[in-house]
């Protein structure tokens, strides 16, 4: 099928610059300590498994002293009560220690970033920026080595914010504000995804997180805060088609907030909330067939626009760096 093939091709391209979305490649402090816990739990589980299955095999095997001992009611007490109690108590103490050392003890004055989940994309607001909050979408940039505090909210249904390489997930619940503290140890690009089923295109609600050295981050944030260049080619078509009703491009009359902010959309890694790699071609693909690429997404279809108009809008978008 043609659209399937195209979809495949687009994603294959994306794979080239893929970010990891794995708890096994941890580079955030929380994820690193959780990975250590995971290995401890796994090894422990394997040992307990071997022990119990060994006892079972012995119980089924040839009669002998071992089998007699296993048949003793005291074995039930020992194996079923004493043994798990000891193991679980040790685990519990360890887990409490981890919890205490965890995100609760964040250092002073962390960097605040607000992330809002929305069907089916992410609104990202850098709250602490000197010139006032700076809004972006579907991509999160953070400085390496600094404590970042994410304020997680939802605009509609429950979503869950998960960047396994950095930390465990935290739900985004309407009417509540949850926090997640990140501290990343190495620069890089990783992938995150919504993990609370949120209807329709839940499977296609992803994003990228880019960890950068602090000075690069500061420079980037300054650029990000700046408005878009005025009177770029295609801007007129963009505005005339009504894109501004839902999207904001700072510095132009487009001030809508229903859809993702687009001021510097071309400088982001992906479009469509982590679905397509940002390339000139993919802007066109998205405008032409976004309903196939991301079924159920809330952007209207633009078949009433002429090919030339869509081409102009795509040109405009790819210039929004």
């Amino acid at each position: 099928m043609k659209r399937g093939a195209c979809f495949l091709a687009c994603l294959a391209l994306l794979a080239g610059c893929a970010g990891e979305q794995s708890a096994f490649s941890a580079t955030g402090e929380e994820a690193i300590s959780t990975l250590r816990l995971t290995w401890i739990l796994t090894i422990g589980s394997v040992l307990v498994f071997l022990l119990v299955i060994g006892a079972l095999i012995a119980a089924l095997g040839r009669p002998g002293a071992l089998r007699q001992r296993l048949a003793d009611p005291r074995m039930v007490t020992l194996g079923g009560i004493v043994f798990p109690m000891v193991v679980l108590a040790i685990l519990l103490i360890y887990s409490f220690a981890l919890l205490r050392a965890g995100p609760a003890s964040a250092g002073a004055a962390p960097l605040n970033i607000a992330v809002e989940g929305k069907q089916w994309w992410w609104r990202v607001t850098y709250s602490d920026t000197p010139g006032g909050p700076v809004e972006s979408a579907n991509e999160l940039r953070i400085p390496v080595g600094e404590t970042v505090r994410l304020e997680l909210t939802s605009a509609d249904v429950i979503h869950s914010f998960w960047v396994p390489a950095y930390a465990g997930k935290v739900d985004m619940i309407p009417g509540r504000t949850n926090a997640l503290t990140l501290k990343v140890t190495a620069p890089g690009i990783v992938r995150g995804q919504c993990t609370e089923y949120c209807g329709g295109a839940h499977a296609l609600m992803a994003f990228r997180v880019i960890a950068m050295p602090p000075e690069e981050f500061a420079a980037w944030l300054e650029r990000e805060a700046a408005p878009a260049e005025q009177s770029l080619p295609g801007e007129a078509e963009f505005l005339r088609a009504g894109c501004g009703a839902c999207h904001t491009v700072r510095g132009t009359p487009a001030e809508g907030t229903a859809g993702p902010e687009l001021t510097h959309v071309a400088s982001r890694q992906t479009i469509g909330a982590g679905i397509l790699q940002t390339t000139p071609e993919n802007f066109r693909t998205w405008l032409d067939r976004h309903r196939e690429i991301k079924p159920g997404n809330l952007m209207p279809e633009y078949e009433f626009l002429s090919a030339a108009e869509r081409e102009a809008i795509a040109t405009y978008l790819e210039a929004l760096e």
């Binding site: 959780t34 589980s45 498994f49 997930k169």
Partner: peptide, 22 residues
Amino acid sequence: LIGGLTGVMVAMVPFNWQAHDT
């Protein structure tokens, strides 16, 4: 038995934060 052991794993809060809903 395996289900029970992974059950103990997901009862550990930090591990749960990773494994939940996956």
